[in-house]
Amino acid sequence: MATALRVPTAADDKYSRGVVALRTGSADYPGAAVLGVEAAWRSGAGYVRYIGGAADAVLARRPETVAGADLGRTRIGAWVIGSGTDAAHRSDNETDALQKILAGSVPVVVDAGALDLVAEAAAPRLLTPHAGELARLCTRLGMNADRLEADRAGIVSEVAEKLGATVLLKGATTLIAAPGAQLIAVSNAPSWLATAGTGDVLGGVLGALIAANPQHPIDETAAAGVWLHAHAARLASGAVDGAPGHPIVALDVAEALPLAIAELLA
Rank of each mutant, 00 (worst) to 15 (best):
L183Q: 09
L137Y: 08
G199W: 00
G142Y: 12
H216W: 14
N144I: 13
A153T: 08
L148M: 10
N188K: 09
A160Q: 04
R147K: 13
A165M: 03
G154C: 10
L141C: 08
A194V: 07
Q182N: 15
P217E: 10
E161S: 14
T195I: 10
T139Y: 14
A145G: 11
P217R: 08
I210D: 02
A208R: 03
L193H: 07
P217M: 06
A178F: 06
V159I: 10
P190H: 07
Q215R: 15
P179R: 07
K170A: 10
A211C: 10
A178S: 15
E149A: 15
A196C: 09
G171C: 09
N213A: 06
L175S: 06
A185C: 15
L137W: 08
A208H: 06
A178Y: 06
P179A: 10
G180S: 12
C138T: 02
A189V: 08
L141N: 05
A153W: 06
A194E: 07
L137N: 04
T139C: 13
G197Y: 01
Q215P: 12
G203W: 00
L168Q: 02
D146H: 10
A181V: 11
V186T: 11
V159M: 05
P214W: 04
E220Y: 10
D146S: 14
T195N: 11
L148G: 05
S157V: 11
P214L: 05
A208K: 03
G197L: 03
T174N: 04
G199S: 05
L163Y: 00
A153C: 12
L169W: 01
G180F: 06
L206S: 02
